[in-house]
Amino acid sequence: MFPTSERRKAGVTLVEMVVGAMILSIIFGITARWFFMQREYQQRLTHISDIQDNFRRANWLMVQELQMARTIIWPRLNADRSIRSDTKLVFKDFNGQIIAYYHIPAEQRIRRCVIPNGPGNPVVTARPVGEGIASLSFTAASIDNRLISLHMSTGGVHSLDAVYLTNSE
């Protein structure tokens, strides 16, 4: 209505606001996308770190006990001397007790139980050996039942290890 030269106040016109909003929205869109991607990446990394912790804990507990064990009862090599894998591991520990490690896929847990020599039910250890482990396999790899390989995996993270039983039966 009035010529622009008559305007006395400094301010922001509608066009400037909208153009600024457009530029802002583009920048925020790019930043938001990058932010969400980074957040997702960080969440994935944190998840991986948690999985690694679970693997280390479970590995340490099992290896500690297995190293001092005397023999592996199950799994054992196949008749044709090929390796054999299972989600359960039964062994005789240093004290002669029969111990079993077994994996529960639904709970993603590794549990330990003591199998009595005589009548009676297995006694499950209260605290699980490992948690957050999606898959576990014990592989018998030696004819003398003194080597057991472990393979754990969760969400694309893996752990490959082996334990040699130092004590004889």
């Binding site: 196949n78 090929s82 390796i83 490959l160």
Partner: peptide
Amino acid sequence: DGYFNPVANHGTQISGA
């Protein structure tokens, strides 16, 4: 090689390795 391969065998024969 005996170190890594075969890595598992859920069967009872070598074919399942």
